[in-house]
């Protein structure tokens, strides 16, 4: 079976089924926004949502993750986590799936990061395709992530009364078979899917004023642009943009001693290139002073450096950095300003 169909009225039954298979995480409402949370009541799952405050990266790259257990006297070290549990990310937008793909690329690049890969091995991704824009901040079309591009086990598309489910892996297939309410998609279902996709083409338009290769060129040539000075002047260095980014993975390490002052754990904790001491060395020299240089670095880590290194853009188009920015710094505006400058 390649495509299955599920009536919306059976969704909650399926969620209950998934709950039994593994730890289930899905989007739900939090005040006026949305967050991924472990599913307790399936009724709380919300599939019509704008990108969650934090991307699901918190489940495969936790905010604070144990790296090792240690004792000083006698000197002992051990892995902090022996066993990782299976989990399902449910209702993931295609932009966030692109984010997971980016993280895979970075953490698989030798030397591998086993902490990340161990979690990733236990992850099942059930995506949902967006049929309209979440809001004006997203730039998913320019990034090519407004449509599914692999990287998931199952992908749901809302065709009205039903969801069409694209089965993309054996792991995914096992979650939709032997259930009487999930059937193979009929020809009519597939036609409906086709119509939905056609309609979508009229809604999603490229948000940047030029295609990605031009964006890359603009970044390549505009390192010294005044655009960065302007962004730096406005930045308050709150670090929101990097925390909410699905492809920001910088971290710091720290030791937490128990009260014995002998045993403890070493963990890693999200860190950000926007922080004051991020690039400062012991001798006191700060190699990336100033908010302009730090903001520029953040942008280059989406549109330039990973393209050189991995042949992949690390912006997913989710729009979170713009949505969360205290100072109204817009990614679309920044990129377009750069393109405009480059065109002059």
């Amino acid at each position: 079976m390649k495509y299955a169909s599920l009536k919306k009225s059976d969704l909650n039954d399926w969620l209950k089924h998934l709950q039994k298979k593994a730890k289930l995480y899905a989007p739900r409402k939090k005040e006026n926004l949305f967050v991924f949370r472990p599913v307790k009541e399936v009724e709380d799952v919300c599939l019509e949502y704008i990108p969650t405050i934090l991307p699901p990266k918190k489940y495969y790259f936790p905010q604070k993750e144990k790296l090792l257990k240690f004792s000083s006297q006698p000197f002992k070290t051990a892995k902090a986590i022996e066993k990782f549990d299976e989990f399902i990310l449910f209702g993931v937008h295609t932009c966030d799936i692109a984010g997971i793909q980016c993280m895979d690329v970075a953490f698989r690049d030798a030397p591998e990061d086993p902490n990340y890969l161990n979690r990733k091995d236990k992850m099942t991704i059930i995506g949902i395709e967006c049929l309209k824009y979440c809001d004006e901040y997203a730039n998913c079309t320019s990034m090519g992530n407004h449509v599914p591009r692999g990287g998931y086990d199952l992908m749901m598309v809302d065709i009205g009364e039903k969801f069409i489910i694209h089965i993309n892996s054996e792991k995914g297939e096992r979650l939709v078979t032997k259930l009487d309410y999930i059937k193979e998609a009929s020809e009519a279902d597939m036609n409906a899917l086709e119509r939905v996709r056609e309609a979508k083409k009229k809604i999603f338009k490229e948000e940047f004023t030029a295609a990605l290769p031009k964006v890359y060129d603009a970044f390549d040539k505009r390192f010294a642009s005044d655009v960065w000075k302007d962004v730096g002047r406005r930045c308050v260095a709150c670090g929101n943009c990097t925390a909410v980014c699905p492809t920001c993975y910088c971290f710091d390490t720290a030791d937490d001693m128990e009260l014995s002052l002998n045993e403890g754990i070493r963990y890693r904790i999200w860190n950000s290139c926007q922080m004051d001491d991020f690039a400062k060395v012991a001798g006191g020299e700060d190699f990336r002073k100033g908010r302009d240089g730090r903001q520029r670095h953040r942008y280059y880590r989406k549109f330039k450096y990973p393209v050189d290194k991995y042949n992949r853009y690390f912006c997913t188009g989710c729009g979170r950095c713009t949505r969360t920015c205290m100072a109204d710094i817009s990614l679309i505006e920044t990129v377009n300003s750069l393109l405009k400058e480059e065109a002059l």
Binding site: Y249, F251, N271, F278, F287, H297, Y300, K304, Y305
Partner: peptide
């Protein structure tokens, strides 16, 4: 070059000069 190497694996980002991880 002296930079703030932290993880040594080219992941944590502290030692980066532009796109280059100094630790690797």
């Amino acid at each position: 070059l002296e930079r703030r190497m932290r993880c040594g694996l080219g992941k944590c980002g502290h030692c980066q000069i532009e796109g280059v991880y100094v630790c690797q």
